[in-house]
Amino acid sequence: MNLWPLLAIAVLVVGFAARLNPLIVILVTTFVAGTAAGIAPLRVLGALGHAYNSTRYVSLIWLILPVIGLLEHEGLRERARTLIGRLHAATAGRIILTYLGLRQLTAALGLSSLGGPAQMVRPIVAPMAEGAAESRFGALSERMRHLVRAYAASADNVGAFFGEDIFIAVSSILLIKGFLAQSGYHIAPFRLSVWAIPTALLAFSIHGVRLWRLDAKLARLARGGSAP
Protein backbone atom coordinates (compact mmCIF):
# COMPACT_ATOMS: atom_id res chain seq x y z
CA MET A 1 0.00 0.00 0.00
CA ASN A 2 1.50 3.34 -1.09
CA LEU A 3 0.89 5.80 1.74
CA TRP A 4 3.00 8.61 0.24
CA PRO A 5 -0.03 10.35 -1.39
CA LEU A 6 -1.06 11.27 2.19
CA LEU A 7 1.77 13.80 2.04
CA ALA A 8 -0.48 15.83 -0.28
CA ILE A 9 -3.04 16.20 2.52
CA ALA A 10 -0.32 17.48 4.85
CA VAL A 11 0.79 20.05 2.25
CA LEU A 12 -2.81 21.16 1.76
CA VAL A 13 -3.52 21.54 5.48
CA VAL A 14 -0.25 23.36 6.19
CA GLY A 15 -0.73 25.61 3.16
CA PHE A 16 -4.26 26.62 4.16
CA ALA A 17 -3.27 27.00 7.83
CA ALA A 18 -0.35 29.26 6.86
CA ARG A 19 -2.85 31.37 4.86
CA LEU A 20 -0.83 31.12 1.68
CA ASN A 21 -2.73 31.94 -1.48
CA PRO A 22 -5.07 28.94 -1.99
CA LEU A 23 -4.41 28.78 -5.74
CA ILE A 24 -0.68 28.28 -5.16
CA VAL A 25 -1.38 25.73 -2.40
CA ILE A 26 -3.60 23.75 -4.80
CA LEU A 27 -0.96 23.81 -7.53
CA VAL A 28 1.78 22.53 -5.20
CA THR A 29 -0.57 19.92 -3.69
CA THR A 30 -1.48 18.63 -7.15
CA PHE A 31 2.13 17.95 -8.04
CA VAL A 32 2.95 16.50 -4.60
CA ALA A 33 0.03 14.05 -4.90
CA GLY A 34 0.97 13.07 -8.45
CA THR A 35 4.68 12.66 -7.73
CA ALA A 36 3.98 10.67 -4.55
CA ALA A 37 1.85 8.31 -6.62
CA GLY A 38 4.68 7.93 -9.14
CA ILE A 39 3.00 9.84 -11.96
CA ALA A 40 5.26 11.81 -14.32
CA PRO A 41 4.97 15.63 -14.04
CA LEU A 42 3.70 16.08 -17.60
CA ARG A 43 0.95 13.53 -16.98
CA VAL A 44 0.03 15.32 -13.73
CA LEU A 45 -0.22 18.57 -15.72
CA GLY A 46 -2.44 16.81 -18.26
CA ALA A 47 -4.60 15.28 -15.52
CA LEU A 48 -5.03 18.70 -13.90
CA GLY A 49 -5.94 20.25 -17.26
CA HIS A 50 -8.37 17.45 -18.04
CA ALA A 51 -10.04 17.64 -14.62
CA TYR A 52 -10.25 21.44 -14.77
CA ASN A 53 -11.78 21.38 -18.23
CA SER A 54 -14.37 18.75 -17.33
CA THR A 55 -15.47 20.67 -14.20
CA ARG A 56 -16.19 23.94 -16.02
CA TYR A 57 -19.87 23.60 -15.10
CA VAL A 58 -18.88 24.54 -11.52
CA SER A 59 -18.10 28.09 -12.69
CA LEU A 60 -21.31 28.60 -14.71
CA ILE A 61 -22.98 30.27 -11.73
CA TRP A 62 -20.92 33.38 -12.56
CA LEU A 63 -23.16 33.97 -15.56
CA ILE A 64 -25.34 35.69 -12.97
CA LEU A 65 -22.86 38.55 -12.40
CA PRO A 66 -24.09 40.98 -15.12
CA VAL A 67 -27.74 40.81 -14.10
CA ILE A 68 -26.98 41.07 -10.37
CA GLY A 69 -24.54 43.91 -11.07
CA LEU A 70 -27.17 45.79 -13.07
CA LEU A 71 -29.89 45.25 -10.45
CA GLU A 72 -27.56 46.42 -7.70
CA HIS A 73 -26.72 49.50 -9.75
CA GLU A 74 -30.47 50.14 -9.94
CA GLY A 75 -30.73 49.93 -6.15
CA LEU A 76 -31.87 46.34 -5.46
CA ARG A 77 -30.01 46.06 -2.17
CA GLU A 78 -31.19 49.49 -0.97
CA ARG A 79 -34.77 48.50 -1.83
CA ALA A 80 -34.51 45.22 0.13
CA ARG A 81 -33.17 47.19 3.09
CA THR A 82 -35.96 49.83 3.12
CA LEU A 83 -38.68 47.24 2.61
CA ILE A 84 -37.63 45.36 5.75
CA GLY A 85 -36.86 48.48 7.76
CA ARG A 86 -40.60 49.23 7.68
CA LEU A 87 -41.58 45.93 9.32
CA HIS A 88 -41.15 46.49 13.04
CA ALA A 89 -41.43 42.83 13.97
CA ALA A 90 -38.51 42.00 11.69
CA THR A 91 -35.11 41.52 13.30
CA ALA A 92 -31.91 40.26 11.70
CA GLY A 93 -32.14 36.95 13.58
CA ARG A 94 -35.79 36.37 12.66
CA ILE A 95 -35.27 37.20 8.99
CA ILE A 96 -32.33 34.82 8.67
CA LEU A 97 -34.24 32.18 10.67
CA THR A 98 -37.18 32.50 8.27
CA TYR A 99 -34.79 32.16 5.35
CA LEU A 100 -33.23 29.05 6.95
CA GLY A 101 -36.68 27.46 7.25
CA LEU A 102 -37.70 28.37 3.70
CA ARG A 103 -34.37 27.23 2.29
CA GLN A 104 -34.56 23.88 4.05
CA LEU A 105 -38.18 23.33 3.10
CA THR A 106 -37.71 24.21 -0.57
CA ALA A 107 -34.50 22.14 -0.79
CA ALA A 108 -36.44 19.20 0.66
CA LEU A 109 -38.90 19.61 -2.22
CA GLY A 110 -36.06 19.49 -4.73
CA LEU A 111 -35.90 23.25 -5.20
CA SER A 112 -32.25 23.77 -4.16
CA SER A 113 -31.72 26.22 -7.00
CA LEU A 114 -34.08 28.72 -5.35
CA GLY A 115 -31.29 29.95 -3.08
CA GLY A 116 -27.56 30.50 -3.20
CA PRO A 117 -25.05 33.16 -2.15
CA ALA A 118 -24.99 35.03 -5.48
CA GLN A 119 -28.70 34.65 -6.27
CA MET A 120 -30.35 35.28 -2.89
CA VAL A 121 -27.96 36.07 -0.03
CA ARG A 122 -25.98 39.01 -1.43
CA PRO A 123 -28.79 40.80 -3.28
CA ILE A 124 -31.74 40.10 -0.95
CA VAL A 125 -31.32 38.22 2.36
CA ALA A 126 -28.22 39.99 3.71
CA PRO A 127 -29.48 43.52 2.88
CA MET A 128 -32.85 42.68 4.49
CA ALA A 129 -31.18 41.41 7.66
CA GLU A 130 -28.86 44.42 7.74
CA GLY A 131 -31.83 46.73 7.20
CA ALA A 132 -33.68 45.17 10.12
CA ALA A 133 -30.61 45.47 12.35
CA GLU A 134 -30.17 49.11 11.31
CA SER A 135 -33.77 50.03 12.12
CA ARG A 136 -33.25 48.50 15.56
CA PHE A 137 -29.74 49.59 16.49
CA GLY A 138 -29.08 52.57 14.22
CA ALA A 139 -25.81 52.60 12.31
CA LEU A 140 -24.09 49.21 12.51
CA SER A 141 -20.45 48.79 13.47
CA GLU A 142 -18.30 46.89 10.97
CA ARG A 143 -18.23 43.95 13.37
CA MET A 144 -22.05 43.81 13.58
CA ARG A 145 -22.49 44.18 9.84
CA HIS A 146 -20.02 41.39 9.12
CA LEU A 147 -21.63 39.12 11.70
CA VAL A 148 -25.08 39.57 10.16
CA ARG A 149 -23.73 38.84 6.69
CA ALA A 150 -21.82 35.75 7.80
CA TYR A 151 -24.93 34.36 9.51
CA ALA A 152 -27.01 35.03 6.37
CA ALA A 153 -24.51 33.01 4.32
CA SER A 154 -24.46 30.23 6.93
CA ALA A 155 -28.26 29.86 6.84
CA ASP A 156 -28.09 29.36 3.08
CA ASN A 157 -25.58 26.52 3.54
CA VAL A 158 -27.19 24.80 6.52
CA GLY A 159 -30.64 24.98 4.93
CA ALA A 160 -29.46 23.56 1.61
CA PHE A 161 -27.22 20.81 2.99
CA PHE A 162 -29.72 19.46 5.51
CA GLY A 163 -32.79 19.91 3.35
CA GLU A 164 -31.78 18.54 -0.03
CA ASP A 165 -31.23 14.98 1.17
CA ILE A 166 -34.93 14.68 1.94
CA PHE A 167 -35.63 15.00 -1.78
CA ILE A 168 -35.30 11.58 -3.40
CA ALA A 169 -33.77 12.63 -6.70
CA VAL A 170 -30.85 14.67 -5.37
CA SER A 171 -27.36 13.62 -6.44
CA SER A 172 -26.15 12.65 -2.97
CA ILE A 173 -29.07 10.21 -2.52
CA LEU A 174 -28.34 8.73 -5.93
CA LEU A 175 -24.67 8.37 -4.99
CA ILE A 176 -25.54 6.55 -1.75
CA LYS A 177 -27.97 4.29 -3.60
CA GLY A 178 -25.48 3.57 -6.37
CA PHE A 179 -22.60 2.84 -4.05
CA LEU A 180 -24.61 0.57 -1.75
CA ALA A 181 -25.98 -1.27 -4.80
CA GLN A 182 -22.40 -2.00 -5.87
CA SER A 183 -21.82 -3.48 -2.42
CA GLY A 184 -24.89 -5.70 -2.85
CA TYR A 185 -27.50 -3.68 -0.91
CA HIS A 186 -30.43 -2.55 -3.02
CA ILE A 187 -32.24 0.29 -1.28
CA ALA A 188 -35.15 2.42 -2.44
CA PRO A 189 -34.18 6.13 -2.53
CA PHE A 190 -37.31 6.84 -0.48
CA ARG A 191 -35.85 5.02 2.55
CA LEU A 192 -32.69 7.11 2.33
CA SER A 193 -34.66 10.35 2.25
CA VAL A 194 -36.78 9.29 5.23
CA TRP A 195 -33.67 8.68 7.32
CA ALA A 196 -32.35 12.12 6.41
CA ILE A 197 -35.28 13.70 8.30
CA PRO A 198 -34.01 13.28 11.91
CA THR A 199 -30.74 15.07 11.09
CA ALA A 200 -32.66 17.75 9.15
CA LEU A 201 -34.82 18.52 12.20
CA LEU A 202 -31.75 18.58 14.42
CA ALA A 203 -29.93 20.94 12.04
CA PHE A 204 -32.89 23.35 12.01
CA SER A 205 -33.10 23.29 15.82
CA ILE A 206 -29.38 23.85 16.40
CA HIS A 207 -28.87 26.59 13.83
CA GLY A 208 -32.30 28.03 14.62
CA VAL A 209 -31.43 28.49 18.29
CA ARG A 210 -28.19 30.21 17.32
CA LEU A 211 -30.06 32.54 14.96
CA TRP A 212 -32.62 33.22 17.68
CA ARG A 213 -29.78 34.38 19.90
CA LEU A 214 -28.18 36.48 17.15
CA ASP A 215 -30.33 39.52 18.02
CA ALA A 216 -29.18 39.43 21.66
CA LYS A 217 -25.58 39.12 20.47
CA LEU A 218 -26.05 42.14 18.19
CA ALA A 219 -27.62 44.09 21.07
CA ARG A 220 -24.54 43.35 23.20
CA LEU A 221 -22.25 44.48 20.40
CA ALA A 222 -24.36 47.63 19.92
CA ARG A 223 -23.91 48.49 23.61
CA GLY A 224 -20.18 48.24 23.04
CA GLY A 225 -19.78 44.90 24.76
CA SER A 226 -18.07 41.94 23.21
CA ALA A 227 -19.87 38.95 21.81
CA PRO A 228 -18.81 35.51 22.96
Binding site: A47, W62, L65
Partner: peptide, 30 residues
Protein backbone atom coordinates in the same frame (compact mmCIF):
# COMPACT_ATOMS: atom_id res chain seq x y z
CA UNK B 1 -21.41 46.03 -13.79
CA UNK B 2 -20.81 42.26 -13.96
CA UNK B 3 -17.15 42.89 -14.68
CA UNK B 4 -16.91 45.12 -11.60
CA UNK B 5 -18.33 42.31 -9.45
CA UNK B 6 -15.92 39.84 -11.08
CA UNK B 7 -12.96 42.13 -10.36
CA UNK B 8 -14.15 42.31 -6.75
CA UNK B 9 -14.26 38.51 -6.47
CA UNK B 10 -10.92 38.26 -8.26
CA UNK B 11 -8.98 34.98 -8.22
CA UNK B 12 -11.49 33.39 -5.79
CA UNK B 13 -13.76 33.07 -8.81
CA UNK B 14 -11.87 29.99 -10.08
CA UNK B 15 -11.30 28.46 -6.62
CA UNK B 16 -14.36 26.15 -6.57
CA UNK B 17 -13.60 24.75 -10.01
CA UNK B 18 -9.93 24.30 -9.16
CA UNK B 19 -10.77 22.42 -5.97
CA UNK B 20 -13.09 20.15 -7.91
CA UNK B 21 -10.19 19.45 -10.27
CA UNK B 22 -7.88 18.76 -7.33
CA UNK B 23 -10.38 16.16 -6.10
CA UNK B 24 -10.05 14.34 -9.44
CA UNK B 25 -6.23 14.41 -9.20
CA UNK B 26 -6.48 13.08 -5.61
CA UNK B 27 -8.58 10.17 -6.85
CA UNK B 28 -6.04 9.43 -9.58
CA UNK B 29 -3.17 9.52 -7.06
CA UNK B 30 -4.97 7.18 -4.65
Amino acid sequence: EGRRLADMIGWALILPQLLAALGAVFALAG
